[in-house]
């Protein structure tokens, strides 16, 4: 080879990952949909100023305006106390999406941390895995209810009613759904740490922290990504269950889960069920696709095909 083509400087791997991600149609579509949902719930309320929580004090007007089908005034219709559903979807979406993503992040962080520690350090394996078994054997919903019941008030006092509820729910869901991730990650780490490239890193003198960050974690991304995308849907639903049982947000404070729950129990107006249902499904579906695309993009063996 005598050509003097320019030798590229090593590219940032994030660029490679983005380039590959862009080629995944489903993932790009998912990204756009999630972007639209986020715009809807964050920017939307700035333009759509209907009241989402408070009921119209004028009783006659309220009763006449109940359970209306979509009109120009109320594009998604009104609910059982004549509140605008679109405004409620916007406010509820903010909470539901935040709960979903943050609770998932907490679960993934705790699960990966425990899985890596248990898989990599032999001495921690027994205690940490028994802890995982312990958590798996607990009835989670009662545990969550007790957790929120015991610490919810303290959090509400510290951060205000809605923010306090948000924190306690997110922490509660996160701390009760990390076990599957921990098990998957531990299994992967056990296999990975016997690989020769980890031995090679040790012979170079790489410390345990760097081996984990550089060699182990990037190779457990795939299963973690799948667990994460499924976890978001779970978190959104769990939040609605908590709210339904009276330990989550206030009953009049909308979330997608609680709106769905309410409509499901009053099936006379199925249209009220469809809106939050579609929103949750869209979120879960597009996050799944994004996860799929990310997994492919992060794997150099698939990249460039």
């Amino acid at each position: 080879m005598t050509d003097t083509s320019v030798i590229e400087a090593p590219r940032s791997q994030w660029r490679d990952i983005w380039d590959q991600f862009r080629t995944h149609k489903g993932a790009m579509l998912g990204l756009i949909v999630v972007g639209m949902l986020l715009t809807f719930v964050i920017i939307g309320p700035l333009f759509w100023r209907a009241e989402p929580i408070l009921v119209d004090p004028d009783a006659a007007k309220m009763i006449l305006g109940r359970n209306k089908p979509p009109t120009w005034d109320h594009p998604f219709g009104t609910d059982q106390v004549a509140r605008d559903i679109m405004a409620r979807l916007m406010l509820g979406g903010k909470v539901s999406l935040a709960v979903g993503f943050v609770a998932m992040a907490v679960a993934i962080f705790v699960g990966t941390l425990i899985g890596v520690l248990a898989g990599y350090f032999r001495r921690l394996d027994g205690p940490l895995m028994r802890l995982t078994d312990l958590f798996l054997s607990l009835p989670l919903l009662p545990l969550l209810l007790v957790l929120v019941f015991l610490y919810g008030q303290a959090m509400r006092n510290a951060f205000g009613i809605n923010l306090g509820t948000f924190f306690i729910i997110v922490i509660g869901i996160g701390l009760t759904s990390w076990m599957q991730v921990a098990r998957i990650v531990r299994g992967q780490v056990l296999a990975l740490k016997e690989q020769e490239f980890v031995l090679a890193a040790r012979s170079i003198g790489t410390g345990s922290t760097n081996i984990i960050l550089r060699h182990v974690l990037p190779n457990v991304v795939s299963p973690v990504m799948i667990a994460a995308t499924l976890g978001i849907a779970n978190a959104i639903i769990t939040e609605s269950v908590l709210s339904f049982l009276g330990q989550g947000f206030q009953p009049d404070f909308p979330t997608w889960g609680s709106m769905l729950n309410y409509a499901y129990n009053n099936q006379t107006y199925p249209i009220q069920m469809i809106w939050p249902g579609v929103a949750i499904s869209l979120t879960v579906l597009s996050v799944n696709y994004i996860g799929d695309g990310l997994r492919d993009a992060l794997d150099p063996r698939i990249r460039g095909r």
Partner: peptide, 29 residues
């Protein structure tokens, strides 16, 4: 003291570029 391993496939991290693999000892030391 360094080592050359038996299985050239298994001894290289599949998620690192060649430059990062060769550069790892330099980063460490």
């Amino acid at each position: 003291m360094q080592m050359v391993f038996q299985d050239p496939q298994a001894s290289l991290n599949p998620r690192m570029t060649l430059a990062r693999i060769i550069g790892e000892p330099l980063n460490e030391h």
